[in-house]
């Protein structure tokens, strides 16, 4: 979990229904229609706004091909934590989602794929039993049908309101990734802003190809935690997509305008035999 009001991290305000939107990074005013045309990337500074799963699907999938599965899964309260159910229902109302991930099948330029899109709007994209199960089902469906899997991550980490069950989702999703690998089916990860904690330490780092959106925050422990408990001065680009690429953990940083084309290329490249 993190908060990040610092300049070089993008802030978390989502695109709302106002006609004029202020960029959280450079504060310039953008007309909503223009922003939509720009795929929700600030035309002034290149800041990538956070997307809802629906917006992401509209940008990536061939029109009307996305078919959601496991849509009816909703969370319980496994450690009987006071207020958890209320918090979940509140988030369901606010986000119009059942939980922090949407999974389904679709085509990209006519190529079959299983796609999962996490949503940071829903309880900070935290991974509890529902997220873990849906990601696992997506990975296993890919393995089962030999269909490439694309996962868009956005998460503050494990959903601690579900106690030990949330931690175990890391093992669950990672073991599903192992099965996907065993069937030689590719897994493509797109790290979006922000991806941290238990999601970084499980399926998000297990892609055959790992893509990141520019300036996305990617890490395990948050900068606040590190600064607070260790008292270390952090470099300016700490835990950005660029930082992670420099250190060898991200294959490519891809601008949102290039993302669909890139994924389409990866799908076709993996469908071909090298020899």
């Amino acid at each position: 979990m993190r908060d990040s009001k610092k300049e070089h991290y993008a802030s978390f305000d989502d695109v709302d229904t106002k006609k004029i939107v202020t960029c959280p990074s450079c504060s310039s005013s953008i007309h909503r229609k223009r922003l939509e045309d720009e795929l929700y990337v600030c035309p002034e500074c290149g800041y990538h706004f956070k997307l809802t799963p629906a917006e992401r699907i509209a940008q990536i999938a061939d029109q009307n091909t996305f078919e959601e599965f496991a849509a009816d899964l909703t969370s319980r309260n496994p450690i009987a934590l006071k207020g958890y159910e209320a918090k979940v229902s509140q988030n369901q109302r606010d986000s119009d989602l059942k939980d922090a991930v949407v999974v389904g099948t679709c085509t990209i330029d006519g190529q079959e794929t299983v796609m999962g899109i996490m949503s940071f709007q829903f309880m900070g994209g935290s991974m509890g039993s529902v997220v873990g199960e849906k990601i696992t089902q997506a990975l296993l469906q890919g393995a089962d049908t030999n269909t490439p899997v694309i996962l868009f991550t956005a998460s503050g980490g494990a959903r601690m309101q579900e106690g030990i069950f949330s931690l175990m989702q890391m093992a669950k999703t990672a073991s599903a990734a192992a099965l996907l690998e065993a069937t030689a089916t590719p897994l493509f990860i797109v790290l979006t802003h922000p991806t941290t904690g238990g999601v970084t330490a499980s399926f998000a780092m297990l892609g055959d190809v790992i893509i990141a959106e520019p300036r996305a925050l990617i890490g395990f422990a948050g900068p606040r935690v590190i600064e607070g408990t260790i008292g270390q001065q952090l470099p300016k680009d700490f835990q950005t997509a660029e930082f992670q690429q420099k250190r060898g953990f991200v294959d490519a940083i891809v601008h949102r305008k290039e993302l669909r084309r890139t994924l389409s290329f990866l799908l076709s490249a993996h469908a071909k035999r090298g020899r």
């Binding site: 890391m170 990734a177 192992a178 970084t200 499980s202 780092m205 422990a221 935690v225 250190r247 953990f249």
Partner: peptide
């Protein structure tokens, strides 16, 4: 817990744990 520090992040603590989860499971 794993060490929450700069060096740890630079060398990819998330990747290291993720890989272990995957490989241990099989």
């Amino acid at each position: 817990g794993a060490y929450p520090g700069l060096a740890s992040e630079e060398r990819g603590i998330g990747e290291a744990i993720a890989r272990n989860l995957k490989e241990f499971s099989v």
